[in-house]
Design a protein around this nucleic acid. Structure first.
Lengths: 110, 110
DNA sequence: TTGACATGAAACCTAAAGGTTTCGTATAAT
DNA sequence: ATTATACGAAACCTTTAGGTTTCATGTCAA
């Protein structure tokens, strides 16, 4: 299969707070555009553009039902983010270990 | 305490691929600007600006040593990202949910 | 003390982001 | 058949992002 050559990646997609809210909202379930845009202080068209960017990154899927387009969230691309983040995981592991040691030392001290 | 009112957050900061590379590079250790910029196909000034954005988000720290400024990575703000991501953790933690998504995607796919 | 080096600030440019309004078109309701 | 609804495409505007070049300043080396 050829590469998707998507215009927007996950990192870009979640950079905008409006789009993060969109994901959160659509996490509740499928919803048509007008209903979605009711939750945002901007025009329906603007929301529609954000949805397109999210769709481009694979974070939402659309489905046409009659005259409406229903969007739902797809968390799969977030796995890339998770993978990226896991690279830095060791930092907190060490930190947590250090904190654990600290707490335990306080504990035994008392 | 007053809010930091930082101009750039961690989501914005990591949205740019150059800045992600910067983090990766600085993960190896502290480095002065000129040395850093040697790794990038752009001017030192441009790199400097990226570093400022990262610093603004708290992802790098700077330290002046003589006539040079040395930057190092600070992973702490990534915890916010991790926290945000953890909200969606259940999706791929739960195997049944994954299977459900798979079945549904096959269903609505073609 | 003179010159080279390291760096950020400033001014500037172009493209992209994020928003608006207007319009066309398909579907639904009367 | 006509009107209302749901939506995306297009054109447009303003601000921000990302880059450049130039300049000023502080520090090190000769």
């Amino acid at each position: 299969m050829a590469a998707p050559a998507q215009k927007h990646d996950v990192f870009q997609a979640i950079a905008d707070p409006t789009r993060r809210k969109l994901l959160q909202l659509l996490d509740q379930g499928e919803m048509p555009v007008t209903a979605i845009s009711g939750h945002f202080p901007m025009s329906r068209t603007a929301v529609s553009k954000h949805l397109r960017i999210l769709a481009d990154a694979g974070l939402v899927k659309e489905r046409k039902v009659g005259r409406e387009t229903r969007y739902r969230m797809d968390p799969d691309p977030l796995l890339e983010l998770k993978r990226w983040l896991s690279y830095y995981e060791r930092y907190w592991e060490n930190k947590m270990a250090a904190l654990k040691r600290y707490v335990e030392s306080q504990d035994s001290g008392k």
